[in-house]
């Protein structure tokens, strides 16, 4: 059904009726105000006067913005590779274990169901200066730390992100693994290829399309670690875990709306570029899952 010129039958327009309520709501609550924010990012909050790139200049010389930006980028660069490798490692084993494997997979998905607000209690017990972790270290004769008020806070946040997202990524990897035909492996084994050789030259190349999708989804999920960071340390955590969302909240409380507008646009553009990348991979690679 390829038509050079698009023609719509009357019946096709019924589709528009199905979509209309959602389109209106999305337009009113998300899209139009987002465009308004873009406009505001080029003007002064109070007078509405056009100021060009002044707001952008202001945020890029703002130490808090630079810190939050640096932390957010550092966080992604550290935790996504760790998560991808670790979840792939587990997925390869779980995929081949049949029933036991799917039971263990459920166990890795459980953290998705544990509300951040609940698990924060465990954190407080573990990472207090007089908490369980320091108690354990003390018994081993190692000097403890004030974990949440030092650079270690960053690593605790990394750990928490991996804990929460491991199951999500394992499910996606297993979907990718099941897409690889068993025949290829059998042919390779007949040719005398070992397990490791099979993994390197069959499994990994075939997972490449999944890799891009999973990385981008993991990145989008990484913004949610703000929840843990906020619940444990409030609006002003240790500077190593001061994230974009903290900064937005604090600007919001100060009603720094023009800075917020410019920073929202910068963040939006950064994410938009990543989505374009993902879309290109979706369109070029076949069968990402």
């Amino acid at each position: 059904m390829k038509l050079g010129k698009r023609t719509y039958k009357r019946g096709d327009l019924a589709g528009l009726l199905f979509v209309l309520p959602s389109l209106l709501g999305t337009g009113i609550f998300l899209l139009v105000p987002l465009l308004d924010v873009v406009r505001r990012s080029f003007s002064e909050a109070v007078s509405g006067k056009w100021t060009g790139f002044a707001n952008y200049q202001a945020i890029f010389s703002n130490p808090a913005f630079l810190l939050a930006g640096k932390n957010t980028i550092r966080f992604t660069l550290v935790c996504i590779p760790i998560l991808l490798v670790f979840s792939l490692f587990l997925a390869v084993f779980l995929h081949r274990m049949g029933k036991t494997g799917s039971m263990l997979k459920s166990a890795f998905l459980v953290p998705m169901a544990i509300p951040a607000a609940s698990v924060v209690l465990l954190w407080r017990f573990l990472f207090q200066p007089q908490g369980l972790l320091n108690g354990l270290l003390h018994q081993l004769g190692i000097q403890g730390q004030d974990w949440m008020n030092s650079g270690y806070a960053f690593w605790i946040l990394v750990f928490s992100y991996i804990w929460k997202n491991l199951g999500y990524d394992i499910v996606l990897w297993i979907a990718g693994l099941s897409g690889i035909s068993e025949n290829i492996y059998e042919a390779a084994r007949v040719d005398g290829a070992g397990e490791w050789k099979c993994f390197i030259s069959i499994t990994l190349p075939n997972l490449l399309p999944s890799l891009f999708t999973i990385s981008v989804l993991s990145l989008l999920n990484s913004f949610k670690v703000f929840r843990e960071a906020y619940l444990v340390a409030g609006n002003y955590p240790h500077e190593s875990i001061y994230l974009m969302q903290h900064l937005f909240n604090n600007w919001f409380l100060d009603l720094d709306l023009d800075k917020m507008a410019a920073a929202a646009v910068i963040n939006g553009i950064a994410i938009f570029m990543l989505i374009l990348l993902l879309k290109r991979v979706w369109e070029s690679g076949d069968g990402a899952g």
Partner: peptide, 9 residues
């Protein structure tokens, strides 16, 4: 993420 949509909402 919410940080992008926060001001518009």
């Amino acid at each position: 993420p919410f940080q992008v949509l926060m001001l518009s909402e």
